Amino acid sequence: MVIKRKSICVITFPPMKAGFTPLSNLIDILTSSSNEIYLITGNESYHHFAGNKHIHLYGIFHSKGNGSVNRIKNYICTHLKIAHLFLKIIRKVDVCIFFLGGEMQILSLIPAKLFKIKTVTIVSGVSIKYEKDILSKIVTKLCTVNFNLVDKIILYSPRLINEWNFEKYSNKILIAPRHFLDFSNFNLSVEFSQRSDFIGYVGRLSEEKGIINFIESIPIILKQKPYLNILIIGDGDLKSNVDKYLSQNGLENNVKLVGWSFREDLPKYLNSLKLLVIPSYTEGLPNVMLEAMACGTPVLATGVGAIPDIINDEETGFIMENNSPECIAKNVFRAMKHPNLEHVVENSHSFVNDNFTYNKAVERYSEILHNIQ
């Protein structure tokens, strides 16, 4: 049964494009679990949600800036802007959810606590340890304060408690993936047997995603499979590194680098692949893994985050021991030569169709909101 709440405010730091789908999914779910939804976000995310009649939208603009001093100054200013917007609506809010960088919003969390508003942080991933500058150290401290003060912490899987060293917060942790798929968009449109030898990577081009490991595996893979084609979809801080490596190693003929893909185009790409590789160092529960499975594309991934909850090796996909280039190449060969690969495809397709519907997601979050009350 859906439990209606008076009002919920979702606060994010202005996310990258990769955050639009997770945030959209969360807003869609909460719309069925609340009478009023307030969303405080920024930059392109604000424009993405503009016109959504189901929410009250408040936006700010964040500029990253050049150099550590400007980055820190702009970062603090953005937090102040977000807190200012939140204070305008604070008396209308019963539950405040921090998401996509929201775990750093201490300037909004403190007044929420003072006004006795229930506070929740949804942790979708931990990538801060891959950043080395002073701002990242500040962010780490802010996250620690948030996790200590917030009423509840939502994780996508119980596996993440140990993996992310969250044992000390175990008394406030709730488990609930907010994932669901639009099966009218993500579906099998090209039979697996009709696809060419084409493997791919879809995701942010950043260190924690293992993209450098993946591109360094390509020469090893091509030594054994010289006619294999590789698709890379994504954008991020390491894009120039990826471009440079592909150019220096003469890989342009085998590798297609697409850049960012709109959601409506992604099913077409996924339906062209015989294998999607997710070589991440850390993950929550990657949307693209579920989307690939819905499109009948087997997934090869490192066993991090909630991935092993979904992928049972050689049953619903493939798990690799680590994400070294050599290990990636070895497991690409293993997956593509698997004698029952089409059976793996059928299993994974059935799994996501059974477990990641909109109704299932609404049920999970209705129970979460009930427990928060």
Rank of each mutant, 00 (worst) to 15 (best):
T31A: 13
T31S: 15
S33V: 15
E36A: 10
N43I: 01
E44I: 09
Y46S: 10
H48D: 04
G51N: 05
H56F: 01
I60T: 09
F61H: 15
N66I: 12
S68E: 09
I72D: 01
K73S: 14
N74P: 00
I76F: 00
L80N: 12
L85A: 11
F98G: 10
F98H: 08
G101W: 01
I106Q: 02
S108A: 05
I110E: 02
A112V: 02
L114K: 13
K137V: 12
I138N: 03
T140S: 14
V150C: 03
S157R: 13
N162I: 14
E163C: 04
K168L: 05
R178K: 13
R178V: 07
F180N: 02
F183I: 15
N187Q: 12
F192G: 01
S193K: 13
F198P: 00
F198V: 02
I211Q: 07
S217V: 03
L228Q: 10
K239I: 00
S240D: 11
S247I: 12
N249M: 11
N253Q: 13
F262Q: 14
L266Y: 01
L270I: 05
K274R: 14
A292P: 01
P298I: 04
P308E: 07
D313Y: 00
E315T: 07
E315F: 02
T316W: 04
F318I: 00
E321Q: 09
F333K: 09
K337F: 13
K337T: 14
E346N: 13
E346V: 11
H349Q: 14
N353D: 04
N353R: 06
S366F: 12
I368L: 04
L369I: 09
